[in-house]
Write a protein that binds this DNA or RNA. Structure first.
Length: 609
DNA sequence: GCCGTTTTCGGCCCGACTGTTTTCAGTCG
C-alpha cells in the first residue's frame, strides 16, 4: 500500500466510487446497508488527482508527495470529515493550513478552484495515461507535449503507427511494455473488483429503496456470489409502482447513459462505465427471481435440469408443475430449492463446482461467516506504512467485537518502511502495556516479514522467537521461475516461526498476475509444517484466490482470513475475505482466526521451541 | 506543502530495477 498503488487506484471507475465504504456494516444479508460515499473518499480522490497534476506539470516532487500523503490520511481517517471545521481538519495527519483550506472549500462549494485551474491545463486523458504500468507522469507529459497524445487509445495508435520512434527515452522495449500494459488495462476495464462493484451496487440499492413504492431491492448476480471481479451488476426489486422505480433508476447521479428502458428491465451504464441492470419482478416471484438472477448460469442449468426430471419447470417466475401449470414455489429461495429436493445453497457456492452433488448428499459445508471471526491476524499501524496509530487500530478492532488482534507491521527488509529492531521492541512494550485496555481484546505482537528471493526473511530465529506471530509475504521478485518461487515459499513454510503466509500469490486484481508456483507442493508443505495460508481480504487482492483455497483445503491446510488493514476503514474489508473463503468452501474448523484464543495460541506456538 | 526531543527552516522513505543511456532518468514498492 504505497503511493504507487494509490496512483494505480485511479482506474476510471475509482474516480467516482470508492473501493470500500467504511461506514457500511458487514452485512451479507444486505439488511440496513448504508452506502453513501463518504466525503473522505471524494476528498482523497481529489487530493490524489491534484498530486498527479502537480507531478505532470513538473511541480515540486515533495509537494506531490505531501498531497499523496494527505489523500491517504483523509481516505483512511476514521471519522467522516463532512461537517468538520478548519481546525478539526488540520488535526488530520498531513493536513496543514493549505490543504485544510482546500478541503473546506470542497465541503462548502463542491469544488477546489486550484484543482479546477490545473484541470484546464492538462487533459484528463493525459493523467489517465499514468494508469498504465511503467508509464509515469514524466513519460506521460513527454507523450503529450511531443506528440499530442492525450488518451490511452491515441497512445496505442501512435505506438502501432511507429510515431514513438526516435522519441527520447522511448526505446523498443518501452514500446513493448506500454502495449502490454494497455492490453492489461483493456482486460481489467471490462470487469471491476469486488470492492468497487459492491460500492456501486450498495449505493444504487440504497437509493432505490428510498423511492416511493419500492418494497424490496437487493443486488444479485456475481456480486452476491462474491466473485472476485464483476462484469456488471444485477439489481432485483419489487415495487407497487414499477414505472416510478425505473424512472428513478435512470435519473440516479451515478447513471451515465440509459442503454435500455422497459417495463420490467432497465439497463444503464454508470458514469464510470459499468453496466447495471434493474429488474422489477412481481412480489410473489421474489424467491424464484432471486435464485435465477443470482446464477451462476451453470448452477441454474443444473437446477433446471433437476426440475425437469421431477416433471417441473423452473423459471424466474417460479417452480411450476408441467402437467397442471400449477405454481409450486416462488416467493422464497429456500422454498424453491426445497421443492427441488435440495437444501438452500449459499450464493457463494453456486458455480456448479460440486455444490449440487454435495447438496443432494446432504453434505454442504457449514461455511465460515463473518460472525465466526474472532480476530484479525494481519494489520498495520503508522509505525510502518499504516495510517492509524496502534491505539486507534486496536480500539476499532475491539469495536468490531474481536477477541484478539495481531499487529503485524513490516520488517526491516522492506527498506522503505524504516523498521528497526528497536522500533519493533518498543512496539512490543507498548502492546504489552495496552493489552487488556480494549474491551478485554487480546493484543498480539506480530510482524509481516518479507520473503526474500531465496526464501529467507528479515530477522534471525532468535529475534523472531520474540513475536507472538510471524506472517511472511512476497513483496518483490514476482517474475521468478516456478521452481524458484516454489522453493522460496517452501523455505518460508519450513521456518518454524512463520505461521502464516500472507497474500500468497501476490496478485493485484487487474494489475499484477499471480506468481507462478507449484501450488500443490506449497499446500503439502503448509499442511506438514502447520503453516496457515492467508486469505487477504483487500478487494484488489483476495489472495489466496478461492480456487486455490479450495485446492489447499483438500490437502489439509489451515487458513487465516485477514484484513491486511493499513487504516481503520480497511478492517471492514473482512467481508470480502469471508466471501472468498466461502467460495473456497472453508468452514470454521480450517480458519484459525475463528478459533478461541487458547486454541489459536497453541497453534502459533507449535514447533517453535 | 507539511512537520518539529533537529521546531519557523531545511529536510522530506530511498534502494532496486529497467531500459535507456555512456553515466542516468523514470518508475515502482
Amino acid at each position: 500500500m504505497g503511493t504507487a498503488s494509490q496512483v494505480k487506484d485511479l482506474l476510471p471507475y475509482r474516480l467516482t466510487v470508492p473501493a470500500t465504504d467504511p461506514d457500511s456494516r458487514p452485512c451479507p444479508t444486505q439488511a440496513g446497508v448504508a452506502a453513501v460515499e463518504r466525503s473522505n473518499d471524494q476528498v482523497a480522490d481529489l487530493l490524489q488527482e491534484y498530486a498527479d497534476l502537480i507531478a505532470i506539470t513538473g511541480g515540486d516532487a515533495f509537494k506531490v508527495r505531501v498531497y499523496e500523503k494527505a489523500a491517504r490520511s483523509v481516505g483512511g481517517y476514521a471519522r467522516d470529515i463532512s461537517g468538520m471545521g478548519l481546525g478539526e481538519l488540520r488535526g488530520i495527519p498531513n493536513v496543514g493550513a493549505s490543504i485544510a483550506a482546500k478541503i473546506d472549500e470542497f465541503l462548502h462549494t463542491g469544488a477546489i478552484h486550484q484543482l479546477e485551474e490545473l484541470r484546464t491545463k492538462i487533459p484528463a486523458g493525459v493523467r489517465m495515461l499514468t494508469v498504465i504500468p511503467s508509464l509515469g507522469p514524466k513519460k506521460a507529459v513527454t507523450l503529450y507535449e511531443e506528440l499530442g497524445i492525450d488518451s490511452i487509445d491515441s497512445l496505442e495508435a501512435a505506438i502501432r503507427a511507429g510515431l514513438l520512434h526516435g522519441l527520447h527515452g522511448f526505446g523498443p522495449k518501452t514500446e513493448e511494455n506500454l502495449l502490454h500494459g494497455i492490453e492489461l488495462m483493456h482486460k481489467a476495464s471490462e470487469r471491476v473488483d469486488l470492492g468497487v462493484g459492491m460500492g456501486i451496487a450498495e449505493e444504487i440499492v440504497t437509493a432505490l429503496r428510498q423511492v416511493p413504492g419500492c418494497e424490496r431491492c437487493v443486488y444479485a448476480g456475481s456480486l452476491r456470489r462474491m466473485k472476485d471481479t464483476v462484469g456488471d451488476i444485477d439489481v432485483l426489486a419489487t415495487s407497487r409502482e414499477p414505472a416510478t422505480l425505473m424512472e428513478a433508476f435512470t435519473r440516479l447521479p451515478s447513471t451515465g447513459e440509459v442503454i435500455a428502458h422497459g417495463d420490467t428491465k432497465t439497463s444503464i451504464r454508470t458514469v464510470a462505465g459499468l453496466q447495471v441492470d434493474l429488474r422489477v419482478v412481481p412480489a410473489d416471484s421474489w424467491g424464484a427471481a432471486l435464485q435465477y438472477f443470482t446464477g451462476s448460469r451453470a448452477h441454474n442449468i443444473r437446477t433446471r435440469e433437476i426440475a425437469v426430471h421431477k416433471k417441473l419447470k423452473l423459471s424466474e417466475y417460479g417452480l411450476f408443475d408441467v402437467a397442471t401449470g400449477e405454481k409450486i414455489a416462488s416467493t422464497d429461495e429456500a422454498d424453491v430449492y426445497g421443492r427441488l429436493g435440495l437444501p438452500w445453497i449459499p450464493p457463494t457456492l453456486r458455480e456448479d463446482n460440486g455444490e449440487i452433488e454435495a447438496a443432494l448428499r446432504g453434505e454442504l459445508p457449514p461455511l465460515v461467516t463473518e460472525d465466526d471471526l474472532r480476530g484479525d491476524l494481519h494489520t498495520h499501524t503508522n509505525l510502518t506504512d499504516g495510517l492509524a496509530p496502534l491505539e486507534e487500530m486496536a480500539a476499532a478492532a475491539a469495536e468490531r467485537g474481536y477477541a484478539y488482534l495481531a499487529v503485524t507491521d513490516h520488517a526491516p527488509d522492506l527498506y522503505m518502511q524504516r523498521m528497526t529492531d528497536e522500533k519493533a521492541l518498543a512496539q512490543r512494550e507498548r502492546i504489552r502495556t495496552l493489552d487488556g485496555n480494549f474491551r478485554g481484546m487480546r493484543l498480539l505482537h506480530g510482524t509481516e516479514l518479507n520473503i526474500g528471493p531465496e526464501g529467507t526473511v528479515d530477522w534471525p530465529p532468535e529475534f523472531l522467537a520474540g513475536f507472538d506471530l510471524c506472517v511472511a509475504s512476497l513483496h518483490s521478485y514476482f517474475t521468478q521461475s516456478r521452481e524458484e518461487t516454489t522453493r522460496r515459499l517452501l523455505r518460508a513454510c519450513e521456518n518454524p516461526h512463520i505461521k502464516i503466509i500472507g497474500h500468497p500469490t501476490a496478485r493485484l486484481i487487474g494489475r499484477r498476475e499471480p506468481v507462478d508456483a507449484d501450488w500443490d507442493a506449497v499446500f503439502t508443505a503448509c499442511a506438514c509444517t502447520g503453516t496457515a495460508l492467508e486469505i487477504d481480504a483487500f478487494p484488489d487482492r483476495l489472495d489466496l484466490p478461492a480456487e486455490l483455497a479450495r485446492r489447499a483445503l483438500g490437502k489439509g491446510v489451515r487458513f487465516a482470513i485477514d484484513s491486511d488493514a493499513h487504516a481503520v476503514p480497511h478492517l471492514a474489508n473482512m467481508r470480502y475475505g469471508v466471501g472468498t473463503a466461502q467460495r473456497g468452501w472453508l468452514t470454521t474448523d480450517q480458519v484459525i482466526n475463528t478459533w478461541p484464543l487458547d486454541r489459536l495460541l497453541r497453534f502459533l506456538q507449535e514447533g517453535r521451541q
